[in-house]
Each structure stands twice: as C-alpha cells, then as structure tokens.
Design a protein around this nucleic acid. Sequence first.
DNA 1: GCAATCATTCAAAGCGATTTGGAGAACTGT
DNA 2: ACAGTTCTCCAAATCGCTTTGAATGATTGC
Lengths: 340, 340
Amino acid sequence: MKLKDLANELGLSQTTVSRALNGFPEVNEETRARVAEAASRFGYRANVSARRLATGRSGAIGVPLPLQRSLHFGPHTSEFLSGISERLAHHEIDIVVTPIDADDEIPVFKRLAASKRVDALVLSAPTPNDQRIAALTELGMPFLLHGRAEEVTIPHAWLDIDNEGGFRRATSHLIDLGHTRIAMISGPLDQTFAIHRDRGYRGALAARGLPVDPGLIGGGRFTDENGFRLAQAFLERRPRPTAFLAGSMMTALGVFRAIRAAGLELGKDVSMIAHDDVFPYLNADNMVPSMSTTRSSIRAAGARIADLLLQMQEGKDPATIHELWPVELVLRESTGPVIG
Amino acid sequence: MKLKDLANELGLSQTTVSRALNGFPEVNEETRARVAEAASRFGYRANVSARRLATGRSGAIGVPLPLQRSLHFGPHTSEFLSGISERLAHHEIDIVVTPIDADDEIPVFKRLAASKRVDALVLSAPTPNDQRIAALTELGMPFLLHGRAEEVTIPHAWLDIDNEGGFRRATSHLIDLGHTRIAMISGPLDQTFAIHRDRGYRGALAARGLPVDPGLIGGGRFTDENGFRLAQAFLERRPRPTAFLAGSMMTALGVFRAIRAAGLELGKDVSMIAHDDVFPYLNADNMVPSMSTTRSSIRAAGARIADLLLQMQEGKDPATIHELWPVELVLRESTGPVIG
DNA sequence: GCAATCATTCAAAGCGATTTGGAGAACTGT
DNA sequence: ACAGTTCTCCAAATCGCTTTGAATGATTGC
C-alpha cells in the first residue's frame, strides 16, 4: 500500500494524507483522525527511500566499525552501540554500521557523504591530531566525536570521559596507600584517551615527587593476553611493582592471572585499579577479590551521543557541544596498603 | 554532483552514464572508460535514496539488536556484527542495526517491511517454536536464522552450529576421564541452542548409563556473575561435582572463580570445558590453566550468514539453505582425569 | 543495393514520497 | 453585503536515480 492508494481509499489527496500523517497543522483534526485510523488499519508506512529522496535527509546515522581496530574494541563496541540504539529506538532513525579499514577511512567517508547514505557520523577512538575531523568538516558531514582530538582547532562536537582525572586520582590513591612502583598498562598509545591516562598517571607521580619508570609502562590492545604478557614482564623486575593500573577489564583479567602465576595475591601483595566501561557481563564487583575501578559507562555515553546527534539535527551548533564526563573511582578489595 | 550534472559534463544522456557506471553491456567500452574517469574525478556517487527508490530495493540488511537480550549477548553481538560487516564491506550493502524490545518484535518487523527499510533480516537466538518465522514469511521479508527453530515447519534458511554434538562430545570426554558428576551451566533455557546443549549433555550421560542430576544443571545469562553463583552452589553439594560444562567464556570466568574460592584447583581437582565463541580479546589458550573448549567462531558464522544473504538476493532459494557447522572440541589444561 | 541486424545512445516515464503555490468554503468585522 | 482572513484541502512539481522503448548510424547478408 502506498500513499496514493491510501489517499484514494480515503477520497483525499496525497498532500493531505501526507500532511495528516506528518503532523502538519493545516489539517482538520477530524480528517487527521480518519487518516490515522485508515493508515493503521492498512498498516501503511511511508516508503523510507521515497521519503529520504524527497526530504534530502537519509534519516540514518553512521557508526564506523573499524574491522581491524574492532579487535581492540570488541566488547566496547557492542555496549556503545546498545547505548546509541537504545536512545534512538523510538526515533525513526537508522543506525548504519559501516565497516572501515583503518587506513582508508577518509575515502569511505567521502563515499558516504557523496551518496548521502547517512546524515551524521559517530567518530570513535581519535588520535590527538585526527585527520578525520578536517575531512568531515570539509565534506559538510556532521559528526560527533567520542573522545577528544586536542590538537585539532576546527570547532566540532565531542563527548569524552575524564581519562586524565580518573587515572590521576587512581594513581594518587595508590600512592596514598604507600605504593611507589606502580605499573601502568594503558591502551594503544597513539590514541588520545591513552595519552590522557598516561598524563594523569605521570601527573600524580610528579605531584608526589615520585619518578616515572618507563620500564613499568605498557600499551597495546585491550586483551587479556596483552595484560598477561605485560604484567608478567613487569613482575619479573626487581624491585617488583606493587600496584597496577589496567586500561580495561580485559587487560585486568590478564594482569590478575599474571599476579596469581607469580604466586602473589591480589589486594594484599599487589594492588590493582582497572578501568571499567561497565559491561553487564563482567562485573568488577563480583570478582574475587572485587576489583577497584575507574568507572564510566560506555553505554551511557552512547546514549548521550545519540541524544546530542538528535539535537544537532534540530539545529544545535556542534561547536557548542563539548561534554567531559567525570570518571568515578570505585574502591574495592583489589587495592590495599603496600606491605613492607 | 548528480547524475544529470555528470551527464551534461560528458555530453551524454543520463541513461548512458547510469548504464556505464552500473556495468550494462550495451555501452561502448571507450565511453564507459570516459564515464568512469569523470565519475572518479568529480567524486560522483549515486544518491542511494534515489537509487533505492528507483530499484525498489533498499540495499540494506537489518540486524535486530534486542535491547534487553543484548544484556545476555553483549560480547557475542559485536563479534557477530564484525563478521557480517567484514563480508559485506565491499558490497554496497548497509547493515542497519535495529533496536528491538524483545516483547514486541513482530510489530517492528511489520514496520520494517512496510517501509521497505531493509531487504532482509538476520534473526538470532530462536526459540524452538519461534513465532517470528511465520510472521516474516507472511510479510514476504527474506531472513536468515542464526540458530534453529526445530518445531517450525515453514521452510526457511538457517545456519547453526552443532551445539548438541559439541556438548555430547565434551560430556563424553569428561566421562572418559572418569568424571560422573558433571555440572552443566547452559544458557537461557527457552532458547533452542541451550536446549540442544542440554540434549547433548543428557545424551552423553545416558549413553554411558549415568544418571542426570537436575541439581547440577543451571541456565541463565552469559555473565561471569551467573557462572560464579551457580558454580558456587553446585560446589556446596556433596558429593561435589568434579567437572563443569560452561555455556560461554564469560560463564567460565565465573565458574573458575568459584572453583578457586572453594580452594580447589582447576585442571586437577575439578575439570571444565567451556564453549568458546572465539573472542579476540579473551583467549582460552592464554588462560592459566588454559581452557578446554568447544569452539566455534561466531564471527565466521556472521561472515557466512552475510554471504548466504547475498546469495538469497541473487535468487537462491532460502528453503535450500541449511548449514550445520561442526563444533570443535579443543582439549587443554582445564580438563584432567578425576582424582580418586 | 536494399532490407535486416547490431551496436550505441537517448528522451521520457516511472519509483513514492514531500512541498510549493493556490483555491474554494466558511468565518470575520464593519 | 463585501472584502479580508482563516481553515482545509488539492494539483502538480520535485527529489535523483533506473529502465523502457525507440532512434540513430554502422555493419552485415544475399
């Protein structure tokens, strides 16, 4: 059933039916009710392709899914997507996940823009001087950055969590507990969020006059394996580190294993604070010992980003959208005073 | 730049340009080359909405993302999506993730179909008598089922892994090692795959004349927490179970913790085989002890499903698409002979 | 040499919505 | 009673592509 059929059925013009369904004011309420009733009776829904062509808006937002990088971000991606889709569930807006080869992202964006496939994009995992921002700005493609690209001066919308503050507080807390040799396993070090965490870590050490030992700093992917390997190497050093910061819960699982493998006990011999993006299937609170974390829900961030994108579509200036979310420090059993 | 502009630029008709770009045979090769060159020079891309309207195909497949159920399937979802998108990366086909409230799925499908938003759907996590199959068939919406709905007689395409066989072999192997009290922590028991696993487990026990102890069977969500709680309860029983089957790696992490918390050692005092969907960030091989698993890559399944959907679009009869993938049994250190 | 075939190209008609620019009827106020 | 509003509704243009049916010139067959 198409608009024309529905209009004929009702003895009305397509114009009136279209306006009735789209809430235009110049339609008699009685007529509108008739139209609405008939539409639902016939199960009529506007053909989205036709609507998109006529309005010039695709009614979709794009979420690039980096095929390689998803190897790092696997569990994060689905929670993030859930957040976005949860917020968009009752807006007629599609979420289009677009596979991207990390090295030729910009050409893909050009194609997306030229074919008017999506109205806006969600950008994730920026580097400090992210080229994508200039490219998208030039293309006139609205976007919202999840994270920050601090060296880029072009005004743009972003939402980020306070990685620096979170890791500074976590590190300070460990220092308060008497730890001085604190190992840090962050994420991929070309990404801004990892740089920010590193900065928070170093800042806290510097504030207390403690040296930074580059031999206790590692980066890499958010996998249990990477956590395990790095932690194992760190634990072989003498004197041993007495505390760990882990960039993700996956990393933390690996670190945890390395600690046990070294015959040490987490929360007594060694402390750990991990960053928790809040996965429903991996709860820091339920671990044994329960895990102290810097916490920020990536799902909530996704939902808020969808919200902000909606606002942008309604005209809100992207240059005014800057949200920096606090990161909670949640202390549990995996952190304890250093034992002499 | 639109088709008309490009045609004018070249001094050709829209028809010819369109045909040249879409690979129709009745275009002079020289002309085609000229068109291709100009198109890439101007960065021309067909407006997808217009194309979709003209062709009547949306060029998109839908992947429902159940908002609540994603709580169970979190990490699986992103790997599955990665598989799909990896396969579709170089086909101009969008992947539209559609948020779904588990209880009103079918109305959403109706809307999707009526508005011609997607050409086909991927259905996940079926129940034995899944209503969605009849609904989609009636709507004329092609779909591919990831899993099986064994009580449904309507012909339809599906791809599943041999959950029953995998768990039967895993259970048999544990019995071979001398285990007789084998706890089973499966998934949500209304879902076919969980039923199949249960059947494999029971079948193996029955084949060796061993009784099924309902007190050693649990279901529920794929979270570490659920695994921990159930395993802890099972381990309090006397005589204690000496082996565990876990429905997912997340569950296995919880079971592992419960085993340690009970002062037991995995791979010696207690054995475990977990189902591994192959997550790049959580490697069974790297665990300590390394985890014996029933293994089947959910990412590969996603890729294959995308492949089959493409074939369906080219006319392949869905009723002929039935793929049952074997599940590997990978033995590592978490399984060992029962110690008297 | 003339009709038939082939290889290319084109003008115009969709696809199914939205939107522009009126137009007729029913109310106003004077 | 009449012009000016206000309510409703409509015909037709438009969005940018694909595709049908026809036209053109070149080539072929006999």
